[in-house]
Amino acid sequence: MQDTCTQRPSEDVVLNALYSAVSGELHWADVLRTLSAYFDASSAMLKLSDRRQCAHSFFVSSQLSDPVAKAYTDYWWRYDPWAKAAQKNLNFQQSKVARGSDLLTVRELKQTLFYKDFLLRIPAEHLLLSTISDHGSADSLQSPPASFCFMRAPDCVDFSDADVKKLKQLTPHLHRAFKLHWQWRSSQAQLLVFQRSLNGLDFGVLFFDATGRMLSVNTVAKEIIADPEFSQYFLPLPHVMQIGSQLDHLVHATTRGKGGPLNLSGKTQRLLAFALPVAYPGRVVDKRKIARCAVMLMLVDPRKQPGAAIDFMVRSFKLSKAESRILPLLFDNHTPAEMADMLGLKISTIRSQLSSVYAKTGTTRQQELILLLGAAPPIRQADPVVPNRSVH
């Protein structure tokens, strides 16, 4: 037998490749190639199994032809004697490392059809296995059951005790990087759903981080930003706002927990902007400086009945069913007495519900709430966000 004589990368190179792949899908092929060289393996695969355990799929493989990989995925995984022995010996538990020759002898392996009809096609005879996630672990909710498999050809020496020791030392990093990668994949999927939901709204929505940097913008907001009518407030994406404009002051004031409404006047049109702190400031840092918060900025065209905006405000401010019933009536500028008559309630009940709505939305009177909802009637000037600056 002969030993493979490839140049093995250092552990630092392996770790750099591993953690560089956390936020990238295509980098895992490079990770597997680097790991193959590190363990002097002829071929390797990062193998996933679904939660029903009725099918296996490759996440990525190294030095395996597509037909061979497909043959394992479609058929041979059911008859893998290494996998069966590992399950029997509890070597498929998270963070377990196993050597193929410790699971069953080479003689036993060679007597199987799996060896004769499949492994010789790779070719492979020696295995080094690390289970980084299993079906029963708490982490399986965040990442699928998976294992790294490193193989050597029949004319190579078996993996040594030193190889097993190195893989045991490396396995916590394999587990951590893979878990972080699947968390990244999950967050990307959630962001996609979130963005599609925002694009379905009939008013503009922008999100900013605590420094005022834009994180997300929906389709309607993009159209508003590109409209020359409001060039005094907006810059082309990704810069968003004119520095020093009232809208810029509003967003930055909201990062300090001081959100509110703003009437934006264009050449022939107007918009209603409302900034809401997404997470209110926390503790005082040094008796003066307060931790900042992210911002949600809504842009509503007052010429349109903001049905989605009302629904969005109900959910954002967690208004009760009773409180949400009076919002359309507020939009139509009805008085509390008219609301009581229309809903068949006492005026004291209406006033109590209005007080609750004002408290939850941070407003103090009906006209401010109408401004917040994007009402069509003439709107009184809101209290300026920045001292000594008027609102147009």
Rank of each mutant, 00 (worst) to 15 (best):
M1D: 10
C5K: 03
C5P: 01
C5G: 09
N16H: 14
G24F: 06
E25P: 02
W28R: 02
A37P: 05
S43D: 09
M45H: 12
W77R: 13
R78L: 14
W82T: 13
V97R: 15
R99Q: 14
S101K: 05
L109T: 03
L113H: 10
F114L: 08
A124C: 13
L128V: 05
L129E: 03
G136F: 12
Q142D: 13
Q142T: 10
S147T: 05
F150T: 04
C156V: 10
C156T: 10
D163Y: 01
V164Q: 14
V164F: 10
L167V: 01
Q169I: 00
L174W: 00
F178P: 07
L191M: 04
L201E: 04
T211Q: 15
E223C: 09
I224E: 07
I224K: 12
L237E: 07
P238D: 06
P238W: 15
L247F: 00
H249I: 02
G266D: 14
G266K: 11
Q269W: 12
F274E: 04
A275T: 02
M298H: 00
L299A: 06
V300D: 07
P302Q: 03
Q305L: 05
Q305V: 06
P306G: 08
L319C: 13
S320Q: 06
E323A: 05
I326C: 06
P336Y: 12
M342C: 13
S352A: 05
Y358S: 11
K360L: 06
Q367V: 14
I370Y: 01
I370M: 11
L372V: 15
P384V: 02
V386W: 15
